[in-house]
Amino acid sequence: MRTAAAILRKDLLLELRTLETLPSMALLSISTFVIFHFGLNQDSLSGQLAAGVFTVTLLFAAMLAINRLFVAEREQGGFDAFLLAPVDRTAMFVAKAAALFIFMVALELVAVPAFALLLAPPRLGHSLAGFVLLLVLADGAFAVIGTFVSALAVHTRARDLIGPIIGLPLMLPALIATARGIGPLLRANSSGSPQLKWLLVLALYDLFNALLAVGLFDYLIEE
């Protein structure tokens, strides 16, 4: 855990110094909302359509972070440095997943207000608690699957292509659950609380993938 904390600290410090990932994620999400506004020719969205637009936007932004997650390790010797140290390999997974999770939360701090402002989904304020709960679980899926896929892709030659094409199908179940969970919350007659089913599906999918990724991560970073 101390090792994971050290890596996470280093990653956040690097992001603070370079500001490479987060601003791009935020900009991309806002641009995506604008594109959806024109593409759908709607000033406001509600229900399942709004949920779909928001989920896809999150996915786009997450893809940026996922593509960059291990690039510094790969290009600046971070992997070697880490492998030389007498520490548990899983710490790297924990730290990177935590970093990705933090990036996603930070992005949502911008993207959710922008979504409310630009596409005015009804009842967002009313069902905010359930909405946030679903987002946290979705962020868990992005973090776990994203870290795994990023670690897999970073050693390939075409990592910018390999990451998304493997990541999208793997994330689909989580995206289905997120979109279906958010949809009813943004209807005009929303009750304000999400269906338990989707919360459970997301939580279980997070857990399942986390266990799988922790078990297999060592094989991905070894030389």
Binding site: F148, L152, A153, H155, T156, R157, A158, R159, L161, I162, I165, I166, L170, L212, A213, L216, Y219, L220, E222
Partner: peptide, 23 residues
């Protein structure tokens, strides 16, 4: 495509195995 994009045969096999388990 993933296999094709990894040059070191050992790493290719290892990554393919990890992929096959997760998938």
């Amino acid at each position: 495509p993933m296999r094709f994009s990894i040059e070191d045969p050992e790493r290719q096999a290892r990554y393919a195995a990890v992929f096959s388990i997760v998938a």
